[in-house]
Structure formats: structure tokens, C-alpha cells
């Protein structure tokens, strides 16, 4: 296990790297590689579930600041199943609290926090990326690119979600920027490129009145994108297909608490699910219920550690 701390030129920027290799040996799961560097921390709790490994992705202090950059590479080898979780939402600050306040408040543009994830999944392997949502605080800027390379026969459940900010103190969609791109390749060919860009700066179109990000996102405070692919998520997909088809919308009187959609990806091979909720709890509850079929894939105990 390596443990390194690197400071950038301005003394505040850090870049952390992590690497996970997970293998299945019969019913055992092994991590020939599980390394990380500040501010990223990876922890693998001991669990008793055949063929399934769990890794928590953590950050020191529970958050990331402008200028931080993290890159993680994950290799799920043949027949292994890996569940990637976080512990509480990933908080993105404009600057590290209590440090260099005089410097950081003087600049209006926050340096972005960057996160890169590269995943390879081998035949009969599966990745279940089920973290808590990203919460960007006021003026914070976050950019992530996540790439998933599957072979035919591999599976993935990829969750990417974010909240409107610290609602308890009145922050609603007041971050500077949230930019998230997820790409899925199967046997080298791109089956999905999901890119979401939310710019907090209101676009000034004269003579029109300003339209803020909150105007565009409301009345919802939490959004999720879920990509499902492969044989291990077939049961989940089948159940969602049935639920979605059964919906019939008559004229609604007031916006629903949870709104979701489902679309096939590359023929019928995968699905993309999008969810919006008036609260984070709305979305969390919806996801936990929708993905419950994964209990038979990763085990009831492991599944209970997601969406807590």
C-alpha cells in the first residue's frame, strides 16, 4: 500500500491517485492491488459474501476542495464483483475550510475539483458503483470524467448523482459548476456517452431577465443518472421496464415528488435511468428500492451498506 502526499505549486493543490485490482479465486475475492494517495483513501472492509469485494472511496476531512484532483483506476477481473461505495456524500468546497481564507475569497472563480475514474471489467465480472451523491457547496466547481470499459459478458450498475447544495443553510443550486461525463465502452465500442454540464453563472442574455440554475433545476433538489448493463443487472432491468411501462400520466396538478425516466441504450443491451427528486431522501429511497434486485447479486448484507 502506498501513501504519499503531494502538494502543487500553490501549496493547496493536491492530486491523489488510487488503484484497485480485484480478482476472484473460486468464492474468494482478492485485491492484488489496493493503493491510494492523499487526499484519496480506499478501504476494503472484510465481508463474507462469495465472489464480492467492497471498497469505500473516502477523502480526508470528508471533502474535496478547488484544485484537488483525484484519479482512480479499477480493474475488475474475470468473475469478480466489486461494489464501490462512499461514506456520506462527497462534499466539494470552493476552498479548504479555515485555510487561506484571505486568498481564496478574493478570487471569484474557484479552481475546479477534478476526478477521473477509469474502469475495466472482464468477462462475467461486475462493477456496482453506488456512492452517495456529490454535494457542491456555494461557488464550488466540480468536474469528473468516468470511463467504463466492459467486455461482452461483463456487467455494470453505475450511479452518478448530485444534490443542490447545503439546503439546511439555504444553498440551492448556487455552486459554480458541476460537470460530469460517463462513458461506457463494450468491446472497445462506445455504447453511451452521458455528459451533464451545469453552469451556475446565470447566462446573461439581454434584454431577457436573468435565469438562474435554480430556475432550470427546480423544483427538484437532487438528480441521479444510473446506467445499467450486462447479465448481472438483467433482473433489475426487467423490473424497471415493467414499472416504467405501467406509468400513465394524466394531467398532473402539482409537480411529483419523484420523477424518473428510462431509456434503452444501444438496442436493448443496456438502460439509462434518470431520477429527479424534491429531496435527496426522495431519490435515495427510489434508488434503494429500484436496485433491490442487486441483493441477489452482491448479497443482502453488502447491499444494505449502499443508500444508508
Amino acid at each position: 500500500m502506498t501513501f504519499a502526499t503531494r502538494y502543487g505549486s500553490n501549496g493547496d493543490k493536491v492530486s491523489g491517485r488510487g488503484q484497485i485490482i480485484v480478482q476472484a479465486h473460486g468464492s474468494e475475492v482478492a485485491f492484488p492491488e489496493l493503493s491510494y494517495s492523499y487526499p484519496l483513501k480506499l478501504l476494503s472492509p472484510r465481508i463474507v459474501q462469495d465472489g464480492v469485494g467492497v471498497v469505500y472511496m473516502l477523502t480526508y476531512g470528508g471533502g474535496l476542495v478547488g484544485g484537488d484532483s483525484i484519479s482512480l483506476s479499477v480493474d475488475v477481473q474475470s468473475s469478480a464483483r466489486l461494489v464501490l461505495l462512499s461514506q456520506g456524500s462527497t462534499k466539494v468546497f470552493k476552498s479548504r475550510p479555515g485555510r487561506r481564507a484571505a486568498v481564496t475569497t478574493s478570487s471569484t472563480d474557484a479552481a475546479p475539483t477534478k476526478q477521473q475514474l477509469d474502469v475495466h471489467i472482464a468477462d462475467a465480472g461486475g462493477l456496482f458503483l453506488l456512492p452517495d451523491p456529490v454535494t457542491c457547496f456555494r461557488a464550488a466547481s466540480y468536474h469528473q470524467v468516468q470511463r467504463f470499459h466492459l467486455v461482452r459478458g461483463a456487467s455494470a450498475a453505475l450511479l452518478d448523482w448530485y444534490t443542490s447544495g447545503r439546503r439546511a443553510i439555504g444553498e440551492e443550486w448556487v455552486f459554480a459548476r458541476y460537470h460530469s461525463t460517463n462513458e461506457v465502452f463494450v468491446d472497445g465500442s462506445r455504447v453511451a456517452r452521458d455528459a451533464m454540464l451545469l453552469d451556475g453563472a446565470p447566462l446573461n442574455v439581454r434584454p431577457l431577465p436573468a435565469r438562474s440554475l435554480a430556475d432550470r433545476m427546480g423544483p427538484y433538489a437532487c438528480y441521479a443518472t444510473l446506467i445499467l448493463y450486462g447479465p448481472l443487472v438483467e433482473e433489475v432491468v426487467r423490473a424497471l421496464d415493467v414499472r416504467f411501462q405501467a406509468i400513465s400520466v394524466f394531467q398532473v396538478r402539482a409537480p411529483l415528488d419523484v420523477l424518473w425516466s428510462l431509456s434503452p441504450v444501444r438496442g436493448q443491451a443496456g438502460r439509462i435511468v434518470r431520477v429527479a427528486g424534491k429531496t435527496t431522501e426522495n431519490v435515495k429511497g427510489w434508488l434503494k428500492d429500484a436496485l433491490r434486485g442487486l441483493e441477489s447479486v452482491v448479497g443482502v448484507d453488502v447491499y444494505s451498506k449502499a443508500f444508508v
Binding site: 477521473q116 460537470h179 461525463t181 432550470r216 433545476m217 438528480y223 425516466s261 428510462l262 434518470r274
Partner: peptide, 22 residues
């Protein structure tokens, strides 16, 4: 990947995506 992403297509309206798909 991160630098290239700044110039690449992206959706800017998640609510519009959901409603269109419904």
C-alpha cells in the same frame, strides 16, 4: 480526458431529459 471534455457536447438540462423521455 478532462481537458477535452470542456469542448465536448453535454446536456445542460437534466429535467428536460427526464420529461422528454416520459
Amino acid at each position: 480526458a478532462l481537458e477535452d471534455d470542456e469542448r465536448l457536447p453535454a446536456s445542460t438540462w437534466p429535467l428536460g431529459e427526464i420529461l422528454a423521455a416520459r
